[in-house]
């Protein structure tokens, strides 16, 4: 989670005059296409896992231990199978099919990522909006809490919290959300503070809107593009943190088909079977890059100021 904080919030580039701007535009479009493809694949794998996966992801087979990916598998007789492509990405140290585990892992990744992002965004937006809109002691209290939050190494904090709540899917989701709400809160607070000082908020007050309706009608639409980007980043962060927790054997009970469990297992047997770790790492990298690209692009298309 540490450096995931540093996800770029760089402004998109609009218009096109110089060669640099035109290439940037082209690259931005390519990133959007790549991002949608990556997210689409992830969603399809997650939704249709039982139909796509060739095998049961948790089924051990002692005769198929550490079998290489199909295109490297030149000893079919040893494993006693006829078609290497029955196990396209090989098997792990318990003989489980890497392909199937990867596909089912996408399912958990989507569940964790989306739930965490929703919870963190909800909590962060509410608290950040309260702090920014009311100011005074409300702001002081919330900002102090954010300060203390930021003085903990986030990875260590999440490990401690998961140890406390138990290693279930729900607790992992809650923990990551509890740690990451500050990201949303800070952005929303800053933006609300800025918007509040503008005239049209006063105008809305004078024409007699309630505080809540002013917030929802006038302020939130302005923060929305940034929130959408953060939301996509947060999905990637949550998936990474789940992997990290699995890696230190603190997530969803080990043996389940998650990318984190595969990576932890793969790290142990890396000298005998590199593919056990390589494919989930690759899936994770592509997922994160895809989420980033889509978040950036969406912000660009949603934000009238940036687009101009």
């Amino acid at each position: 989670m540490s450096s995931v904080e540093s996800f770029s919030l760089e402004k998109g580039r609009g218009g096109g005059g110089t060669g640099l701007e035109r290439s940037a535009e082209k690259i931005s479009l390519l990133r959007m296409v790549f991002g949608c493809a990556a997210i689409g694949t992830l969603l399809i794998a997650a939704l249709f896992a039982p139909w796509i996966a060739p095998h049961d992801p948790t089924l051990d087979d002692l005769f198929l231990i550490n079998m290489p990916p199909a295109w490297l598998n030149d000893d079919l007789a040893y494993f006693g199978i006829e078609n290497a492509w029955a196990y396209p990405l090989g098997t792990d140290s318990l003989g489980r099919d890497v392909t199937s585990r990867l596909i089912y892992g996408a399912r958990l990744a989507v569940i964790v990522g989306v739930s965490v992002a929703c919870l963190a965004a909800l909590a962060g937006v509410i608290l950040g909006a309260l702090a920014g809109f009311y100011g005074g002691w409300v702001d002081n209290v919330i900002s102090r809490i954010v300060d203390v939050w930021l003085s903990f190494p986030p990875v260590l904090l999440s490990i401690i919290l998961v140890a406390m709540l138990g290693t279930t899917l729900t607790s992992v989701i809650i923990v990551v959300a509890v740690i990451d709400w500050t990201r949303f809160a800070r952005v929303v607070r800053a933006d609300v503070l800025q918007q509040r000082s503008r005239d049209y908020i006063d105008a809305a007050r004078i024409t007699g809107g309630s505080d809540l309706s002013i917030l929802i009608r006038e302020v939130l639409p302005n923060v929305l593009p940034l929130l959408v980007t953060l939301f996509f980043f947060e999905i990637g962060i949550a998936i990474t943190v789940e992997t990290i927790l699995s890696f230190v054997s603190l997530s969803v009970s080990s043996g389940a088909a998650t990318w984190g469990d595969m990576i932890a297992e793969g790290r142990r047997v890396i000298n005998e079977a590199w593919w056990v770790m390589a494919f989930p790492v690759g899936a994770l990298v592509i997922t994160i890059l895809g989420l980033n690209a889509t978040g950036d692009a969406l912000r660009f298309y949603l934000d009238p100021v940036l687009r101009k």
Partner: peptide, 12 residues
């Protein structure tokens, strides 16, 4: 370099 967290760089 920025999009991929240090944990993943280490694994790579």
């Amino acid at each position: 370099a920025q999009a991929i967290p240090d944990f993943l760089w280490a694994l790579i």
